[in-house]
């Protein structure tokens, strides 16, 4: 009944065109169709945030959006935030402050944290915990995640002040 449709989305600055059924969840489009496997599937029920991506400036759980809704949108995943040779300050901070153990939640954590720091560049510890409430971690106990985000914020603010 539901036929494949033509969709066009921009992922990490690259325009992607493909045919898909409207019911395909965006997380599957990214991971299986476009081979962008940074966003993970933790729960698939909108609870864990492992699938978090940024869509038109919003942190979104990609398991809770149909590809049809994302048609025409601009999407950023962890791959678009920084790579091995040019780590984002958040990625560096997570590495330095042990903000991860198994790493499963990390792409979602960091993607969400980029948006949090954009909206609130100098968050308190409490604001970080509240702003990261949509991302679950089964390993770290969160302490080092909060530390990492604090450290990245400080570094980003210092870099910004230096250029001003």
């Amino acid at each position: 009944m539901s036929k494949k449709q033509h969709y066009k989305i921009t992922v990490n600055g690259k325009e992607e065109e493909f045919l898909a059924e409207p019911r395909e969840l965006l997380i599957y489009t990214l991971r299986e169709r476009l081979n962008i496997t940074g966003p993970h599937i933790g729960c698939e029920t909108s609870h864990c945030g492992a699938c978090t991506v940024t869509i038109d400036g919003k942190s979104v759980k990609a398991c809770t959006m149909f590809v049809a809704q994302a048609d025409g949108k601009d999407i950023t995943t962890i791959e678009g935030i920084g790579g091995p040779d040019d780590l984002h300050p958040l990625q560096k901070a997570f590495k330095e402050h042990h903000g991860l153990q198994c790493g499963y939640c990390t792409p979602g954590m960091i993607t969400r944290a980029t948006k949090l720091l954009e909206e609130n560049p100098k968050p308190t510890e409490e604001e970080i915990r509240f702003g990261m409430a949509g991302n679950l971690c089964r390993c770290t106990g969160y302490q080092n995640i909060v530390k990492s985000i604090m450290a990245a914020a400080a570094e980003m603010n210092a870099a910004k002040e230096a250029t001003e």
Binding site: K58, S59, V60, T64, L116
Partner: peptide, 9 residues
């Protein structure tokens, strides 16, 4: 209500 991701949508 919910969490930041849910509140954006």
């Amino acid at each position: 209500i919910a969490d930041p991701q849910v509140r954006y949508m």
